[in-house]
Simulated assay, not measured.
Amino acid sequence: MRPFKTLDAKAAPLPFASVDTDQLIPARFMKRSRSEGYGQYLLYDMRFDGEGNPIEDFPLNDPARAGAEILVGRRNFGAGSSREAAVYALVDYGFRCVIAPSFGDIFASNSVNNGLLPAQVTEEDAETILSLLENGQNRAFVDLETCEIRLANHVFRFEIEPVWRTKLLNGWDDLDLTASYADDIARYVVSDRELHPWLQEIPASV
């Protein structure tokens, strides 16, 4: 994965609470191959009407938000089923960061494993950010090293699990994270052999 340190990008408001994974990508699109890209199906039933026409006042259909890499929502973002395809849809659409007061646990974990930053802010700060975006601001700066979001003349703090922060900063998946402890693991193996020789594997007879 690409390391995530800072991001200076367009931001789009999504002023809804409890946007769930079925809304992020409706189940009927999950039969398609990931190689086709899931971005076009992101929030499909919210972005388009029954005839497949864009809903003009939906935030992501605003030309001014085209190319946005930061999405700002309300509480309980990514609730619902554990489908990782919801994160694929966000990433394939171009988002690298979602800002919200709270996230579905599995959604947040899946996000980190796909290089998407789930930045948790207070409800008050989320409302302030949404208000700024809805009143003309369209860019934000996210700094994962300091855990800060800068927008207009405001600075907002966000929270993220320390191990998730480490993975994103380094562009690591779970295997990379484990490999980073290779020296510690090797020392433990040597120490354990000395402390518990009776637990070690007995060589096969020649």
Rank of each mutant, 00 (worst) to 15 (best):
N138G: 08
E123C: 00
L195G: 14
M46A: 10
F48Y: 15
G50S: 15
P101I: 01
V72D: 05
P13M: 03
D184E: 15
E84K: 04
S102I: 01
V190S: 15
D143T: 03
L60P: 05
F158W: 02
S102V: 03
V155I: 14
R165D: 06
H196G: 04
K5H: 14
E201H: 08
F158G: 04
R74G: 11
L199P: 00
T166G: 06
S82A: 14
L199S: 14
V163I: 13
D20A: 07
E56N: 12
N113A: 13
S35H: 03
S205Q: 08
P63Q: 09
A27D: 12
E194V: 11
A12P: 05
P59G: 09
M46H: 12
L14Y: 06
Q200C: 10
N61Y: 14
G67N: 06
Q120G: 11
F95A: 04
A152R: 02
F141T: 04
Y188K: 07
F29G: 06
S82F: 09
E124Y: 06
L7Y: 06
S111V: 02
Y38E: 02
N153A: 09
P3R: 11
N76S: 12
N110S: 12
T178L: 13
R150L: 06
A64P: 00
N53Q: 15
S111M: 03
L168E: 12
D49T: 09
E123Y: 00
C147L: 12
A86V: 01
I185A: 14
S109V: 06
V190A: 15
A86G: 02
A85D: 09
V91M: 07
F103H: 00
D184G: 13
R150S: 12
L14R: 04
N114L: 13
N110M: 00
Q23H: 10
L177D: 09
H196F: 14
R32H: 05
F95P: 01
D125T: 04
D183L: 09
L71C: 06
R34H: 05
D173W: 10
G94Q: 01
S102Y: 03
S111H: 07
K31C: 03
W164D: 12
L133F: 00
A108K: 00
A89Y: 08
K31W: 03
Y188Q: 11
K10P: 01
T6V: 14
P118C: 04
R28Y: 08
S180M: 01
L116P: 10
Y41F: 14
A179E: 15
L90E: 04
I185F: 13
R83T: 09
T122H: 04
S191V: 07
L144P: 05
A179D: 14
V189N: 14
G115P: 10
P15S: 12
N76E: 10
F95Q: 01
V163M: 09
F158C: 05
